[in-house]
Design a binder for these strands. Structure first.
Lengths: 212, 212
DNA sequence: TTCATTTTATTAACACTGTTAATTATGTTT
DNA sequence: AAACATAATTAACAGTGTTAATAAAATGAA
């Protein structure tokens, strides 16, 4: 009987329509403005209907956050073709930074807000976190290959990877939250114009080079 | 006439009582749970009275965020007595990290949330940001002195300082937001036990040492 | 086809939130 | 005591996430 399948598909369809509507609102107006009622209005359903497809708002945000990780993952994927590990590491940094700047709301949801990761801790007790770990695994692998190629030889791989991630995350966060621009406009000796995000990143690359 | 002064003092008193109540709630239950109504109940006033002393909730949060910067500033202050610049730089990192872990809500308000800094941009158009800049100025100064002492000689001071801040901020953020612990529990090759915050920080210090 | 059952969607309501306008109470000055 | 200014309050608006009870629709068996 194909009827049940068609129903299942219909159900899955509506689930997706809810997510699409939520994504639209989220990317346009941010987290707060993405209310259950507005999502419902967009898909022309009653607000409470949404609760038949998602546990709560955090559930929807978790789904969106997964989409974000898929996007980042796909951008990281193409870097596998950069064979030289140190080149790849630098490119990863650029891609990460570019992703954060191009998708600030996604980045906030994925790395800054605590709501989605608390949802993971509460409901995904198993090992369903693939998307997120994959990116970090890729970083660890690349650092390992860098070490094999003679870079960072005196450092522990995981520790070094965490340092790289911390720096990139901190840099992107400070930029997105406006702290970087704020320092640039208020500190007198920074008035020599210039894109401090770019400059700082270049400084980071220079540091990595010195660490060979 | 001392009456007017006493009235002024009374007004300033209530303003402080509001802030204290807000601080209590904020440190106990976080940002969201600190509602105007709860603050009002705590000081036994009507909710709307608060609007006679603070423009809105963001204003209160800005005041709290300033208190946070004063606290961090005082902790940074004692570091002035560490004469060796590189030692002082390392100590600054430790103090920053310790502050973030001991005052997670303050840290979030000061460096992670965008609400207070948007309030600054909107209402403190002048140069009233002292508290925040002071800490960064201290960092720049220390980096400069490190350079004078032969460290990081090939790097631009401001760029290097931004890198240090980014790394420390990223590390603390990832820790507070739970990402660090999450990676530790899910990634198989990280199961060797251990405080990854501490290990990563030590790795950072090692990096700085290699950069001499 | 009709009736009973299950699934899906809706309305109404709860308990909150920040915030504003209009009104009352308080205290000061003439 | 009357007039005024300040301070505080009540009532209300426009939202929020979420749940329980009810109505509608689709499905199963007789």
């Amino acid at each position: 009987m194909g009827i049940k399948e068609r129903k299942e598909k219909h159900k899955e369809d509506l689930r997706q329509r809810i997510l699409d509507a939520a994504k639209d609102l989220f990317l346009k107006d941010g987290y707060e403005a993405t209310s259950i009622r507005k999502i419902a209005e967009k898909i022309e359903f009653s607000p409470t209907t949404i609760y038949l497809y998602y546990k709560d708002k955090a559930d929807i945000m978790y789904a969106l956050h997964q989409e974000g990780f898929k996007l980042l993952g796909s951008q990281f994927g193409v870097l596998q073709h950069v064979s030289e590990p140190f080149e790849r590491l630098k490119a990863m940094g650029r891609v990460y930074m570019s992703f954060a700047l191009s998708n600030p709301d996604f980045y906030e949801l994925m790395f800054i807000m605590k709501e989605p990761i608390e949802f993971v801790k509460a409901h995904c007790h198993d090992e369903e976190w693939e998307e997120g770990e994959q990116a970090f695994t890729a970083l660890i692998l690349t650092v390992d290959q860098c070490k094999a190629a003679g870079y960072f030889t005196s450092f522990d791989t995981t520790t070094f990877a965490l340092n790289v991630w911390s720096l990139m995350h901190g840099l992107c966060s400070l930029k997105l939250q406006g702290h970087l621009d704020h320092m640039a406009t208020t500190k007198a000796h920074m008035l020599e114009e210039g894109d401090w995000l770019e400059k700082t990143f270049e400084g980071f690359i220079a540091m990595l080079n010195s660490l060979k």
